[in-house]
């Protein structure tokens, strides 16, 4: 999948509209993501950031507009699984396959989708588990692992497909606080490999540290699209984003956060 032109963005979202019945969840989304960029999508709960990343691999249907990944339009049909194979996803609830060991969770997709042998896939899977610090847990089932360990296996599972893009849908929101750090560390290490990432997160200091582009969303619209130094440094341009940041700092419930976070002094 290297047939994209140099000028063309890797992910191109044009005039995207998404409805849940009468409710419009996404309004006129236009977004171009270059290869290697790391986007942090932030905003209040219900602002549409999860919905947006879930549209990119068509886990959510959209009603109007287009999404292209590496020049391939994302829509039902023969090419969809090709796109999905290049777009890895890490879910809030991990969604590991509970009837498989950690190793098989990581190995199965390359076998089924890429057609490589089990032997080769398991060798690769073991190396990936090593990379996320879990090689000694390779033969455990997900139910025998902690939340943080499960999410690290899930990241390894996504990496096993060697995707061009990784989508993270609130990867630490379902974790106990003491496990957030280990998962963020792994994501940071992955970010350093240069893979393109879109990260939906409520962890502001992490967003600032790892991303090179901050997308602030509210009510289904992209309100701001700025570098993190600007967004977190001199403060957001728009009133809404400023209000959000302030409420995050105060642990305001409207921001969908449970605890105050040190943001600006990070």
């Amino acid at each position: 999948m290297t047939h994209q032109k140099a000028t063309q963005p890797f992910i191109k979202i044009t005039d995207l509209q998404k409805f849940y019945g009468q409710f419009q969840a996404l309004h006129d989304i236009n977004l171009a993501v270059e290869k290697g960029q790391i986007l942090a999508l932030i905003g209040p709960s219900g602002s549409g950031k999860s919905t947006l990343v879930r549209c990119i691999n068509l886990l959510e249907q959209f009603q109007a507009g287009t999404i292209e990944v590496d020049g391939i339009e994302v829509k039902e049909g023969r090419n969809l699984n090709k796109v999905r194979a290049e777009v890895g996803m890490v879910f809030q609830q991990f969604n590991l396959f509970p009837h498989m060991t950690a190793l098989k969770n990581v190995a199965i997709a390359p076998v089924r989708v890429r057609g490589i042998s089990w032997e080769e896939a398991e060798k690769k899977a073991l190396a990936l588990l090593e990379r996320v610090g879990l090689s000694q847990h390779a033969h455990k089932r997900p139910s025998q692992l902690s939340g943080g360990q499960q999410q690290r296996v899930a990241i390894a599972r996504a990496l096993a497909m060697e995707p061009e893009v990784l989508l993270f849908d609130e990867p630490t929101s379902a974790l106990d606080p003491e496990m957030v750090g280990e998962v963020l560390d792994v994501i940071q290490k992955v970010a350093e490999t240069g893979v393109t990432m879109l990260i939906v997160t409520h962890e502001m200091s992490f967003a600032r540290r790892v991303s090179n582009r901050v997308i602030f969303m509210e009510q289904g619209r992209i309100i701001e699209d700025t570098p993190p130094e600007e967004f977190f440094g001199c403060g957001p341009k728009t009133d809404r984003a400023q209000l959000f940041i302030r409420s995050v700092l105060q642990g305001h419930p409207d921001a969908g956060l449970t605890a105050p976070l040190q943001v600006l002094e990070d």
């Binding site: 691999n57 886990l59 999905r84 194979a85 890895g88 879910f91 969604n95 997709a109 089924r112 989708v113």
Partner: peptide
């Protein structure tokens, strides 16, 4: 769980493999 279907789809599984595995 719906997340199981989503995880399989997101990895690029064909429908048959998703059901079978």
């Amino acid at each position: 769980a719906i997340g199981q279907f989503e995880a399989a789809k997101a990895l690029g599984f064909s429908w048959t493999d998703m059901m079978k595995d």
